[in-house]
Write a protein that binds this DNA or RNA. Structure first.
Length: 423
RNA sequence: GGAGAGAUGGCAGAGUGGUCGAACGCGGCGGUCUUGAAAACCGUUAACUGUAACAGGUUCGGGGGUUCGAAUCCCUCUCUCUCCGCCA
């Protein structure tokens, strides 16, 4: 959520930012400015009235204490006259506040100055590439065929017990999942991230805090009876751990990591995008989250990007890092780097991580603050990234490492997987 | 699922209609003392809103009500805890 003072001070900045993000409903900005003005005028009126009522009530108390019953009664009548008026103003004020809030939460975050303009993924900017292309001259099977060949994943069985997009991992496939999760968590912990195992369902306030509500209502699974949402990412419960808290500056940056399954309805997806593990409704992911001071948050972001990059290198995958253009960024993000790994068998790039700085967009909703050196409380910046999402990593590991003898795993996984080859 | 208790500042915990934004304690910050630290002592320390700055306003889990006046009384919702039942 954008801070209201920005609308008063620099409306143009907001309009420019929204344009870069290709946000259409820019009328909202003017409406918000307008409502804010009316709201403040009404606030002044309301406060003045409340002030005089408070003073009168106090006087009555004093008169009563002195035993001047008559004087008290007289004053009571006087104050009673303004009650209806005060109530009316207070009601109008609260209506305006609600209206303004509803508009504010519909506006996305503003993009950082380094975000390239653009509308589609084609406009994303390649920051750098790494790793090397595997040699797949002997065989070049897509991961869904490899999964079948080595009995790693049963997509049909998932259809039966739940529906499409809910794969069943089994045998060496299940073991590889567990190996990856453990490896990722250990890697994050070694870098100073504290491990959490959060709830996989959250309440409305949490989903709202990180920006899934109201923006992505239809993308989350909703347990209606209890009004809980299945988490689309561990970012939601983990960031919300600090909702409504004031952090000591000495504790920053807060570094957290968590494994969780992620549930996404992915309404509107189709075709080759959804084949095999490319897009599923339930998948596993290890997430990293940081809370940082406003001055240090972009260094923190760079650090997180490097962290994920080294992790990908350790898996021996060919990757590239993209700086997302305004039109491809998420609602809450100010700057996002996407990591893609190259699937040699499918001959396409697959997104495996997304690392973002949200600045104060989430923390303003969640009221996550810290006391700075001068004792002033201000909002922290929140950042997060996947480190890493499993399905596409698994897809690329299977495809890019296939040999006639089996699938050769990168060395970092050997101890976790228990052996060097799937076969 | 049944019965009961409760929700107050960073924490802990008083306060049951009138100078209560809220005692005492812990913690934090500043100071005295000390070579330095600890201890002791003194002072200070809620958030939000609002203003150029003051003033003013709001907030004692959320919402509503009673009253001139509500942390305190009533209604309602949410959550937590204890006991019983069921159960991984």
């Amino acid at each position: 959520m954008l801070p209201i003072h920005l609308f008063r001070q620099n409306k143009e900045l907001i309009l420019d930012g929204l344009k870069k993000k290709n946000f259409r409903d820019t009328d909202l900005v003017e409406k918000i400015v307008n409502i804010d003005e009316r709201r403040r005028a009404l606030q002044v009126e309301n406060d003045a009235l409340a002030s005089s009522q408070n003073a009168a009530a106090k006087s009555i108390g004093q008169l009563m204490a002195k035993g001047d019953k008559e004087g008290a009664e007289l004053l009571k009548e006087k104050v009673g006259l303004h009650k209806e008026q005060a109530k009316d103003i207070a009601q109008k004020l609260s209506d305006l506040e609600t209206e303004m809030q509803d508009m504010l939460v519909r506006l996305p975050n503003l993009p950082h100055s380094s975000v390239p303009a653009g509308k589609t993924p084609e406009d994303n900017e390649v920051v750098r590439e790494g790793g090397s292309m595997p040699d797949l001259t002997a065989q070049k099977l897509p991961h869904w065929e490899l999964a079948d060949k080595y009995k790693l994943i049963d997509f049909e069985l998932g259809n039966k017990i739940t529906g499409s997009g809910f794969p069943v991992f089994m045998g060496q496939g299940a073991r590889l999942q567990r190996a990856l999760i453990n490896y990722f968590l250990d890697y994050n912990m070694a870098a100073g991230y504290k491990e959490f195992c959060p709830p996989f369902m959250v309440n409305e306030a949490s989903a709202y805090g990180t920006g899934q509500l109201p923006d992505k209502e239809g993308q989350m699974y909703h347990a209606v009876a209890d009004n809980f949402y299945l988490i689309p990412t561990a970012e939601v419960p983990i960031t919300n751990l600090y909702r409504d808290t004031i952090i000591q500056e000495s504790e920053l940056p807060v570094k957290m990591t968590a494994y969780s399954p992620c549930f996404r309805r992915e309404a509107g997806s189709y075709g080759k995008d959804v084949r095999g593990l490319n897009r599923v409704h339930q998948f596993d992911k290890v997430e990293i989250v940081q809370l940082a001071t406003p001055t240090g948050s972009y260094d923190v972001l760079d650090g997180m990007v490097k962290h994920v990059e080294v992790l990908l290198q350790s898996l021996g995958l060919q990757y590239r890092i993209l700086r997302l253009c305004g039109g491809d960024m998420s609602f809450a993000s100010a700057l996002t780097y996407d990591f893609e790994v190259y699937s040699a068998a499918q001959e396409r790039w697959l997104e495996v991580s997304s690392v973002s700085n949200f600045e104060t967009f989430q923390t303003n909703r969640m009221k996550i603050r810290y006391k700075d050196g001068s004792g002033k409380t201000q909002l922290v910046h929140s950042l997060n990234g996947s480190s890493l999402a499993l399905p596409r990593i698994m897809a690329c590991l299977l495809e890019n490492n296939q040999t006639p003898e089996g699938i050769k795993l990168p060395q970092v996984l050997w101890s976790y997987f228990g052996k060097e080859m799937i076969g």
